[in-house]
Amino acid sequence: MKTFARTMLAIVGGYVGTSAIIAALAGIAVAAGGMERSEAATLTSMLGFVIYLAVIIWSFADPALLRVALGLGAVSGLSYAVVLLLARAPV
């Protein structure tokens, strides 16, 4: 059961978390870094694979599953908030 939870957290949670992080990074790169839209999207999408890999490894390496879940949840939530904020603000 715990193993199943860990696997789901790594695969599904990791994917959702990574998506949120790269969306926020792309938004920040455009809004604050003045990067071109297509460039920011391409760059952060490619970074996504590395971030996802790190999250998968982390969730299997860390003995405290709850810590991974909380950490990932917090970062994803924060990223999502950034995305929403940037979407509302006129760029």
Binding site: A23, L25, A26, G27, V30, A41, S45, M46, G48
Partner: peptide, 16 residues
């Protein structure tokens, strides 16, 4: 990376 737009489209959605 070839199919980045399929696998990680969220960054495209975010800026577009």
């Amino acid at each position: 990376v070839i199919l980045f737009a399929i696998y990680f489209p969220s960054s495209i959605w975010a800026v577009y």
